[in-house]
């Protein structure tokens, strides 16, 4: 009997993980689309909101935009080094990206603090309600992105981005030795080894260290998280002019 592929990947080019991320981004686009669309409609109906927008500091906002854009660049660099299998550089760029995300959040909270100290809160009026909701929602996504990046970073530090090369296995006691066919995902294999996209995958069919998700190296996830990070970046590219530059 023909026992092959079938279960997963018959449509070839795109991995399930990537597909999952794209669908996730699709749903996020609808969420932000709804929120931003609502804001635009109401903003058009209220030219007077320009006064409020005037309270936002364009230089600080621009700086933050710059920080986030640069972090997208370092994310790309991390991904580039995945192809080169340069673990050190991957770690460095991941860390840089995460740090810049944190800087972004820091600047954001500085701005928030400034508003609060001037007695401006989400319930002050509708403009500020939108400002805090939109940027707050975006900040939550930044936090999620940073978390994912840092998780990958720790995988990198522990050298778990790729399965150990034969003979140099760092596998823990009890795991099958090198040379044993650990998982043959090209086979009609245990479905439980398919990758999850939320949390680092655990290879459930074998004991040993975590290096394999969905039969693919953890390193592949750098691209997935990168896609998400760029999305978060793009959202900000929309928010910045809509909120700051419409005074």
């Amino acid at each position: 009997m023909i026992v092959q592929t079938a279960a997963v990947e018959n449509s070839g080019e795109i991995s399930t993980g990537k597909l999952g991320i794209w669908w996730l981004i699709g749903s996020e686009i609808m969420i932000f689309g709804g929120a931003i669309g609502s804001f635009i409609l109401l903003r058009l109906a209220h030219p007077d909101w320009a006064d409020n927008a005037g309270h936002l500091s364009v230089p600080i906002g621009s700086l933050n935009t710059l920080v986030l854009l640069t972090s997208s660049y370092t994310m790309v660099k991390a991904f580039e080094n995945v192809k080169k299998r340069d673990r050190k550089k991957i770690c460095r760029f991941l860390l840089a990206t995460a740090l810049m995300g944190l800087v972004f959040l820091g600047i954001k909270s500085f701005e928030y603090h400034g508003k609060f100290s001037h007695g401006i809160y989400p319930n002050t009026n509708l403009f500020w309600a939108f400002y805090f909701t939109l940027t707050g929602l975006h900040a939550l996504h930044v936090i999620a992105g940073i978390t994912a990046i840092l998780i990958l970073w720790t995988f990198g530090l522990r050298d778990r981005l790729w399965p150990p090369a034969p003979g140099t296995g760092t596998a823990s006691p009890g795991s099958p030795g090198p040379g044993i066919d650990i998982i043959d995902i090209s086979n009609f294999s245990d479905p439980s080894i398919r990758g999850g996209i939320i949390r680092p995958n655990v290879n459930m069919s074998i004991p040993g260290p975590r290096w394999s998700g969905g039969g693919r190296p953890i390193a592949d996830r750098i691209e997935l998280v990168g896609l998400y990070w760029h999305f978060v970046d793009v959202v900000w590219i929309f928010l910045f002019p809509l909120l700051y530059l419409t005074a």
């Binding site: 669908w23 699709g26 749903s27 996020e28 686009i29 609808m30 969420i31 932000f32 689309g33 709804g34 929120a35 669309g37 609502s38 989400p122 309600a129 909701t133 929602l137």
Partner: peptide, 17 residues
């Protein structure tokens, strides 16, 4: 479901706030 629920999620956040 997928392409319609997003705006309502945004709306629900606003309603919650």
């Amino acid at each position: 479901f997928f392409f319609s629920v997003g705006p309502l999620i945004a709306g629900a956040i606003m309603l919650l706030l």
